[in-house]
Design a protein around this nucleic acid. Structure first.
Lengths: 336, 336
DNA sequence: TTGTAGGCGTTATCAC
DNA sequence: GTGATAACGCCTACAA
């Protein structure tokens, strides 16, 4: 017997489809025995209500989209874990999308979602200096959005970030205090707000310590490892910084590789601090000093904000911006 | 104007819903001008066909589920990247689910999918010695399944694995050749097939070199880092192996931490080789010798197998098992 | 407590 | 090349 829908089940059981529906939806208006009989029979025949049909009826997808620049990255994968944790408790499922930091992919995916595909969206964005109207359209369709880590300031959505300015200031100051005077700032995308905020912390720390900001020391890197290797090789050979403040984990690793090949001693000749969520930073050679963001907690918080918006549609007008604290871990790469 | 569905669009344009539908589905039976007019108008009003309604009609979800034990793990996140890559090209989306290596979660999620929620499933499994009937039910509903890395041998589905036996044999032999005689085998879940296959390679290498297998040297670890730390501390203090062959990346890291704290010198006092997809293994202190699986390629392959099954439902009867090759990288943790 | 009927938004079939 | 209509599987008034 190949029972596939509520109708056939109804026929088999000599019962109406509505009663069956009630059995599956925790309705109080149903006899306990009837319900048990239905559920038992359904289970036996391996039946479950079709999610798409239910959704078509009541416009609840129980699904949320997570849009991030990359997956194979400790920060993001930990954040996903946090989001998943919350989503699961709520009985929600996750549609995952990776933008590779390409703005167009972000736009096309968000547009695709713009038709009742998901109940809400959690994202870390990829393109700053662009038109963000595709996001405003979601708002008009009541699909709440929560940004985490990388946000668009011009969009009125809930946001979860970390105290990037302070961390960057502290990390730079730390490098200065260990004696660095020519600190390079490594960044992938200067234009996105997070890159700017972090750079501001860096600049202000320099200023406080009367070190002149040198434009040459702001190193714009790429997403391509080989390109970064070349860029950094050139920087270490020609610009010769004595400190590195990396706003992106990947760039710190690239620096390590270059130092290995150029036989530059970390931390003697070059001190390094980097934003990083790598759990095994202490195991690197030398142990990497990190600004570690609470990635998992950020995921949890972002998901909670989303569910708040979902659950009290009304109170959604005051969008919240939650700022969590990162932690600076000083290790051998910037110490003695 | 708040156009939300094909009907209202039709009214606005003085055109039938069928024509609009045709415009969106690349039907040849439509006047080019009409089509352009419709698409332009739709775009202007931010309309897209509702995915759930379409699905209800033609039973194509354009979505596939990816079920894995963990996300924050280089192997799996790289594999997801590969899967995503292929899925995207096919216009498919990904529903991600993490089992935390808990068999019950795997079952409950798969059961949830058992109602037309997705077109296919790619998974790396979590519970070996169990009843896998929940998976057989998918088969009857024509939801193809592809396993990767961790598979159930008793389920007739396409599989993508690596040459685990050979790699394990080679890694163990390498340790023996560097002089190790008491090599501990670290494993998380002895019972799953992948743990067994890797252990067999280990045992056979021992035998070939006339080293007696010692049960005491098979170290059953957990998913909890603190517990592992304790277990490994005890092992290094009491059982005192001179080599470690770790079937799971995480356990190698734990060993590093323990060695740091016990002041055990790697590789002088203890040599280590581990399965690992960590890109920065060379940057560890000391650089970690790894068996590196082609995670990304495995994801690609798994997704391709799934699409094959999806596209030629007929030819699905001979399920394929693809075996890719891992690579042994010998670095300082097991050398001089 | 249970049943009937209409509709969610789309598309395939058939007619024109 | 276009339009009317039924159906996909489910849920919720409303009626009984």
């Amino acid at each position: 017997m190949d029972i596939v829908n509520i109708k056939k089940l109804a026929k088999e059981l000599n019962i109406s489809t509505s009663t069956i529906s009630r059995a599956f939806n925790g309705s109080p208006d149903i006899n306990k025995d009837t319900k048990e009989r239905i559920l038992a029979f359904a289970k036996e025949h391996n039946f479950l209500p079709n999610h798409y049909a239910s959704n078509l009826r009541d416009k609840k997808t129980k699904t949320l989209a997570v849009i991030i620049p990359e997956i194979a990255n400790d920060f993001f994968s930990q954040a996903i874990n946090g989001i998943e944790e919350v989503a699961r408790k709520k009985g929600f499922y996750i549609l995952l999308y990776r933008t590779d930091d390409v703005f167009e992919k972000e736009v096309s995916f968000v547009n695709y979602l713009n038709n009742g595909k998901v109940d809400g969206i959690i994202m870390s964005v990829s393109g700053e200096a662009n038109d963000h109207n595709y996001l405003r359209q979601l708002e008009s369709k009541n699909v709440p959005v929560v940004f985490f880590d990388r946000v668009y300031e011009d969009i009125d959505a809930a946001k979860v970030t970390t105290n990037d300015y302070d961390s960057s200031f502290d990390a730079t100051e730390h490098l200065l205090q260990t004696g660095c005077r020519r600190i390079a700032y490594l960044v992938v995308n200067k234009s996105i707000s997070i890159g700017q905020v972090r750079m501001q912390g860096y600049m202000d720390a320099l200023k406080k310590h009367n070190v002149v900001f040198d434009d040459e020391l702001v190193i714009d890197c790429s997403n391509d490892e080989k390109v970064n290797y070349k860029i950094l090789t050139k920087v270490l050979q020609e610009i010769k910084p004595d400190g590195i403040f990396s706003s992106v984990e990947r760039l710190a690793f690239a620096t390590y590789y270059v130092c290995n090949d150029l036989a530059i001693d970390i931390p003697k000749q070059l001190k390094i601090v980097s934003f990083s969520s790598l759990g095994i930073a202490p195991l690197l050679s030398p142990a990497l000093s990190t600004i570690t963001q609470p990635a998992y907690e950020m995921g949890i918080k972002a998901a909670n904000l989303l569910f708040e918006a979902l659950e009290h549609k009304a109170a959604t007008n005051h969008k919240r911006h939650v700022v969590l604290k990162s932690k600076l871990f000083i290790r051998r790469s910037s110490g003695e």
